[in-house]
């Protein structure tokens, strides 16, 4: 690994050029360096995106939020405004590794590493977050779920990288949540994860919901039946049972060292239920 070339461009243009020439994008490096070291990735020049203008920081714009793609996850948790608006997104980002990892790992890295178990991704997709992708052809805005196409694979073209993550403005009585299951209490990869975003009406009836599961398929998956299970209903055990079933239906997990097909599927239902319940309670408090 010590023979790698390292390049830290300061502008989007230079970054695009370096990546186009075969460089590998790095933001926090907490996954990339581990994979390079283990020989799971072929060695190649590293393009560090942390110094690129626009990849750092959190700001509010037109009621929505813009998060620089290389912003360390810890900064999300320290941002009171973001925590209040998108607690689930912050929860997902806050589960990426230890305190030490939190100070390096970024949303873009977690996303583009394209692990099915990435903790920040289900909540981002549930939140209908988008990415600003910079590349040789300029900038384009794409939904987060369009980035990852398979295990370790993204839709990013040569020279492209994620510059920003954007979160939409919040309607009243809306809230999100993210939960995962791991064997320990910390320092693990999700065996399954569930992000939920919910909007209630004034009567506490579900108006809109999106539930997204992680680690139960090659990419994060949207629970297609969540709306049918929950929209138009109040929070009760029957609604959660319907959601549990709907969640299990979309699971296509594998059995590996972290969990079995059966366990992942069942646990996805449990987590979906629990995440929705938390998001629901949060949304009610915002009424």
């Amino acid at each position: 690994m010590s023979q790698l070339q390292y390049y830290a461009p300061g502008s989007v243009e230079d970054a695009v050029k370096a990546l186009g020439a075969g460089g590998r994008a790095m933001s926090g490096g907490t996954d990339l360096l581990v994979q390079l070291r283990a020989g799971r990735l072929p060695p190649g020049p590293i393009v560090d995106l942390k110094n690129v203008a626009g990849t750092q920081g959190i700001r509010q714009e037109n009621g929505g939020w813009i998060i620089g793609a290389a912003t360390p996850a810890a900064l999300l948790g320290e941002h009171a405004g973001l925590v209040a608006a998108w607690p689930g997104v912050v929860e997902g980002a806050g589960l990426i590794g230890s305190t030490q990892i939190q100070n390096r790992a970024s949303l873009a890295g977690n996303l583009c590493n394209a692990s099915p178990a990435a903790d920040s991704v289900p909540a981002l997709i549930a939140a209908r977050a988008t990415c600003i992708v910079a590349g040789p052809g300029g900038r384009r805005e794409v939904p987060v779920q369009a980035i990852v196409t398979g295990v370790g694979k993204t839709s990013l073209g040569p020279g492209e990288f994620v510059l920003e993550i954007r979160l939409p403005p919040r309607p009243p009585r809306a809230a999100d949540a993210y939960l995962r299951a791991i064997p320990r209490t910390e320092m693990d990869i999700a065996v399954a994860g569930a992000g939920a975003d919910i909007v209630l009406d004034e009567a506490g009836v579900c108006q809109d919901v999106r539930v997204v599961l992680g680690a139960v398929a090659p990419t994060a998956v949207i629970v297609a039946g969540a709306s049918a299970a929950l929209v138009g209903f109040r929070l009760d055990e029957a609604a959660l049972e319907r959601l549990d079933s709907a969640a299990q239906v979309v699971c296509r997990p594998i059995s590996d060292k972290r969990g079995t097909v059966e366990y992942r599927t069942r646990i996805a239902g449990v987590l979906a239920r629990r995440a929705v319940a938390i998001a629901w309670e949060r949304a009610e408090k915002r009424a």
Partner: peptide, 27 residues
Amino acid sequence: CGSGDCGACSIMVDERLVCSCLMLAPE
């Protein structure tokens, strides 16, 4: 461990706690 899982290499960089095994020297 060399993979950020044990914390034995913990240091502070610009007042943030990091694993120095997961940071490149040029950074």
